[in-house]
Amino acid sequence: MKSTEDRTSYKRITEHRGQWALQRMGYYQEFGWSVEAEFDESILLWHIATDLLYHETKHENKEEPEHNDQEISQNISNYMLFLLIVRPFMMPAGIGQIRFGDTCAEASNFLQSEGDIKECAEKILRVSTEYDPGVVKGDRSKSVLFTGCKLAHLLKEQFIDGNEKKGIKPMNDSDGMWRLISAVWVEMLCYAASKCSGQYHAKQLSKGGELLTVVWFLMAHLGMGEQYRIEEGHARAKLIVAK
C-alpha cells in the first residue's frame, strides 16, 4: 500500500508475484529468475528453498525473532503449496500438479532411506548446484527439486555464509534473509488472490471459506487489483464480481 499512489499503481501491484519485493529490497538481479518462471514453478521453487532453510535453521536461533518472518514464510509457503495441489481451480492455470508429482518422485528416489525432516533437508542441501539442474536432469522430468535447492544455496550465500568465499567476514544476516523470503511469499499470495475468479471465491465461501478469499476481500477494501474500480474523485473502490 505504501507503493500505491494512483489508479495505475493500484492495478499494477497485482501483476507482481515477487518481483516488486525483490526490486524494493535490492535483490532482483540475484533472484529475479525465480519469480519470472511460470507461477506454479515459482511456488515450488520458493517452497523447496523455504522448507530446506526452515528445517536447517529453525533450531539454530535460541531467541525468537522480533517479527518471526521465518514462521510466516513457512506458513504461507505450505498454504500456497496446498492451494496448488488441492485447490488448483483457485490458482492461475499451469502444470503445477505435474511438476509437483515429478519433484516428489525425484525427492523420493534421491533420499531413498527414510530419515527425519531435518536430516533430509541437510542431505538435499549438500548437493552441489554448480551446474544448472535443468541441464543435468534433461527435459523429460518437470522436477524442480534441485533448482529449488539452488535457490536455497543462493539465499544462504547472499545472506549468511557466501562472503567467506570472497575473503569477507560472513554477514550471518538470517533475519534479513527471512524478511526477503516472507515479502516474496506475501506478494505471491496477493497475486494468487487477485487472479482467482470471483465465482471460485464465492464457491469456497459456501464450503467454509479460504484464506485466499480473505486476502481478496482485504485487497478489495484497499482498492487493489483488477476486480476493483476506483471511482474518480472518491477514495473508495467498488468490487466487480463477474458472473
Rank of each mutant, 00 (worst) to 15 (best):
C104S: 12
G167E: 04
H55W: 15
V214R: 05
I117D: 06
I240D: 02
V35K: 04
E210L: 12
D69T: 08
W178N: 05
G18A: 07
E231N: 13
P133M: 04
K166L: 14
D139T: 15
K165G: 00
D132G: 10
V241N: 04
T4D: 07
L84G: 02
F100Q: 05
V186W: 07
G162C: 10
L211H: 01
D175S: 07
G176A: 13
M219C: 06
R140V: 11
L151E: 01
R236G: 11
T129A: 06
V136M: 15
E164D: 09
R87K: 15
E187W: 06
I95L: 14
I48H: 05
L151C: 07
S73E: 03
K156H: 13
V144C: 06
L189M: 08
S197V: 01
L81Y: 11
A220D: 10
S42K: 06
F146V: 03
G26Y: 02
L154C: 07
L154W: 08
K137S: 05
V86E: 10
R236H: 15
N109E: 14
T57G: 02
G96L: 01
S3N: 08
D51L: 04
G101W: 03
L239M: 06
F217T: 05
K150M: 12
T147D: 13
V186S: 09
D173I: 08
M171H: 14
F31E: 01
S141C: 04
Q158K: 15
I43G: 03
A152C: 08
A93I: 13
A105E: 12
V184S: 06
K142M: 14
K123W: 08
M219P: 00
I230W: 07
M177N: 00
S197D: 14
M188I: 10
G209W: 05
N163H: 11
M171Q: 14
P133W: 03
R126Q: 03
R24G: 01
L151G: 02
G18S: 05
T147F: 10
L212I: 05
C149F: 06
F89P: 03
G94I: 03
A237G: 15
A105N: 13
A93N: 13
W216G: 02
D69W: 13
Y200S: 02
L218E: 12
Q29Y: 09
K62R: 12
T129H: 01
G233L: 08
G208R: 08
E210M: 13
S77P: 00
C190F: 08
L239G: 00
T4I: 14
K142T: 04
N109G: 11
S143D: 03
K137L: 11
G18Q: 02
W216I: 00
G209F: 07
M224P: 02
L151I: 09
Q199A: 12
R24V: 08
V86A: 12
G115M: 15
T147P: 00
V214Q: 07
Y28P: 02
K165A: 12
L205P: 00
F31R: 05
T14M: 07
M90F: 06
I124E: 00
P92S: 04
A93H: 14
E30Y: 10
V144K: 07
M80Q: 11
E226A: 09
R12E: 01
A152F: 06
S143K: 02
Y10H: 15
M91L: 09
N75C: 06
E41T: 13
L205V: 05
A107S: 13
A49D: 03
L222A: 14
E130S: 15
A242G: 06
